[in-house]
């Protein structure tokens, strides 16, 4: 047992100590895009922002019908009034951000050198509350998800633009960690994200067809008709991890933040089109 633990630690340590041998994020992204474009040659690059609806005509038809009366509209409205509310100190969310509300979504997730970690939009919003002496939201709180719905809606049509500056070794390490997580098999069912969302993309799993990972982050948060409510991206991670019978991580854990950082980078150049509607 102790021997195993030692071995494990040393394997992990060596695997962390060799980032130089790894292809850079931009090569990874180009290969990722090439892969999905060759699997689905009839699908335009921009269409991948629509997830499963880019590749499945039947569910696309249903979705277009749903989009006539978007079930996430209420969340956008709620989010907007949250955004405009004044904190007890008289300030608002807008005072925390240098950018106008249509340019905030695209700034996250980002690596903040000073903090040494990936900051997601949810974290930035909660930081803003804390800085103004307001209680932070739980990461699955409706208020927080609605705020992200509003900011995604405002940002529609702006490109995903995650940056990994070459002079930020911490950003590259976070990206590599997210990439490792994405491609690692886990859980009792021994599945990696890539097994479903790359290798088996387009195949049926029970009532669902598996959507491509290219575009995975563009349309969150989403209204899920199955749940009758909105969920954020990391709640989806949590669900997929539970489905392979692995123990999920906490929302906004380092694991999920780095995974989001990697996945969002893979979607660079696609348009933000959240919030979305999904089964």
């Amino acid at each position: 047992m102790n021997k195993t633990a030692v071995m494990l630690t040393s394997i992990l340590a060596t695997s962390l100590a060799q980032p130089a041998a790894i292809a850079g994020p931009e090569e990874d992204r180009a290969a990722f895009v090439r892969y999905f474009q060759s699997r689905f040659p009839d699908v335009e690059f921009d269409e991948f922002a629509n997830g499963i609806y880019a590749i499945d005509a039947d569910s696309r038809r249903q979705w277009l019908e749903i989009e006539e009366f978007p079930p996430y509209e209420f969340a956008i409205e709620q989010g907007e009034s949250e955004w405009q509310q004044t904190f007890a100190n008289g300030r608002t969310f807008a005072d925390c951000f240098a950018q106008p509300s249509d340019s905030i979504r695209a700034m996250y997730p980002r690596y903040e050198e000073a903090r040494g970690e990936v900051v997601t939009l949810e974290i930035a919003l909660n930081d803003c509350r804390a800085a103004n002496d307001e209680e932070p939201y739980a990461y699955d709180a409706e208020e927080l998800i609605d705020l992200t719905a509003f900011l995604a809606f405002e940002a529609r049509g702006k490109a995903v633009a995650v940056r990994i500056p070459a002079d930020q070794p911490g950003a590259i390490a976070a990206y590599e960690d997210g990439k490792r997580f994405y491609y690692s098999k886990r859980g009792q069912l021994n599945f990696a994200c890539s097994d479903c969302h790359i290798t088996s993309v387009g195949q049926r799993v029970r009532a669902d067809r598996l959507g491509p990972s290219l575009g995975h982050t563009t349309h969150f948060p989403v209204y899920r008709s199955k749940l009758g409510g909105m969920i954020g991206l990391q709640q989806r991670f949590l669900g997929c991890i539970r489905d392979v019978r692995a123990k999920p991580f906490e929302l906004q854990s380092t694991e999920y933040r780095n995974l989001e950082f990697f996945l969002a980078y893979m979607s660079n150049g696609l348009m933000i089109n959240g919030p979305g509607a999904r089964k």
Binding site: L8, Y35, R180, K185, S194, D195
Partner: peptide, 9 residues
């Protein structure tokens, strides 16, 4: 710890 690497696109 190593096997994931072969899956990278």
């Amino acid at each position: 710890a190593e096997a994931w690497r072969v899956r990278v696109i």
